[in-house]
Amino acid sequence: MLSVIILCGGASAEAVVRTLAPLVDATVRGIVRDVVLAGGPERQLALIADHAGCAFIEADMEAEVLAGALAAARGDALMFLHAGHIPEPGFFEEVEDVLAVGLGPGGRVLRAAPEGFLERLFPHLAAKVGLVAARNVCETAQPVSFRHLCAKTRGPKELRRRMRRIV
């Protein structure tokens, strides 16, 4: 089961809530174990986390946010998501298949759905908006930023399903 860490960054409260919504079905299906909201202290995460029944971490520095989120997550498999993105249909089925086989030593990067002409031609140019990786790989990386975490847990594969921007 996955522990999902939603990186709230500069996202609005509405974007955070809309990112949480698809996780309800995944939780009912037994894919998601727990959710941690992570971001700066000005994000009103305590209120959203209280209503959603999830944990929250607030800190000023991104390295502190990631360290706190890693400590708060309970599962052995972690999924990091940027608030403001939701998965395309079939996303959690693909994640379920990946977890059944095993994550291995690297992570699986989640990219945004292509929005521009160049991203449609070259899908690898789409922004990295998430990551699925084993807890021990993430802890060993000692990330200072999401970009650093993606670089340190770089796996050979990406998930095929994309994350659609909602705001």
Results as ranks from 00 to 15, higher is better:
Arg165Pro: 13
Leu125Trp: 05
Glu58Asn: 04
Val28His: 10
Val32His: 03
Arg147Gln: 13
Leu45Ser: 11
Val132Ile: 15
Pro114Leu: 00
Val132Trp: 04
Ala134Asn: 08
Val36His: 07
Gly116Lys: 00
Ile48Asp: 02
Cys138Trp: 03
Phe56Gln: 12
Ala67Asn: 13
Met163Phe: 11
Ser145Glu: 03
Lys152Thr: 03
Glu64Ser: 15
Leu66His: 05
Val129Asn: 05
Pro105Gly: 09
Pro114Trp: 00
Ala127Tyr: 00
Thr153Gln: 06
Phe92Arg: 03
Ile86Cys: 12
Ala46Val: 10
Glu119Trp: 00
Glu158His: 08
Asp50Glu: 15
Leu45Trp: 05
Ala15Trp: 10
Pro114Cys: 01
Ala126Tyr: 02
Leu2Met: 13
Phe92Asp: 02
His85Trp: 12
Leu110Asn: 00
Glu88Trp: 01
His82Asn: 13
Leu45Lys: 07
Gly104Val: 02
His148Arg: 12
Phe56Arg: 11
Pro22His: 08
Cys54Pro: 11
Asp97Lys: 12
Gly30Asn: 08
Val132Cys: 08
Cys54Lys: 10
Pro156Tyr: 08
Gly68Leu: 11
Leu70Thr: 03
Glu115Ser: 06
Val17Glu: 15
Pro89Leu: 06
Val137Asn: 06
Ile6Met: 07
Ala69Lys: 08
Arg120Gln: 03
Ile31Arg: 12
Leu103Met: 05
Arg154Tyr: 07
Thr140Cys: 06
Ser145Arg: 07
Pro143Glu: 09
Arg74Asn: 11
Gly107His: 00
Cys138Ser: 05
Leu47His: 11
Gly84Leu: 01
Leu121Cys: 02
Glu42Asn: 14
Gly155Glu: 05
Arg164Trp: 05
Leu149Pro: 06
Ala38Gln: 04
Pro114Ser: 00
Gly104Pro: 01
Ala21Pro: 04
Leu78Tyr: 01
Ile57Asp: 06
Val95Asn: 00
Ser145Val: 06
Asp76Trp: 02
Val101Trp: 01
Ala46Gly: 12
Pro105Phe: 03
Ala52Tyr: 09
His148Glu: 08
His82Leu: 14
Ala55Gln: 13
Glu42Thr: 13
Leu47Glu: 15
Ala46Ile: 04
Leu149Phe: 09
Gly68Trp: 06
Gly155Asp: 04
Phe122Cys: 00
Val4Gly: 07
Leu47Gly: 09
Met61Tyr: 11
Ile86Leu: 02
Leu125Glu: 00
Phe91Asn: 00
Arg161Gln: 14
Leu159Gln: 04
Glu119Phe: 01
Ala126Asn: 05
Ala113Trp: 02
Ala11Pro: 07
Asn136Pro: 07
Gly130Thr: 09
Cys8Ala: 15
Gly155Val: 06
Ile48Arg: 04
Pro123His: 03
Leu149Val: 11
Ala69Ile: 09
Glu93Phe: 03
Thr19Ser: 15
Leu118Thr: 00
Ala127Lys: 06
Val17Arg: 15
Pro156Ala: 14
Arg135Asn: 10
Ile166Asn: 09
Ile166His: 08
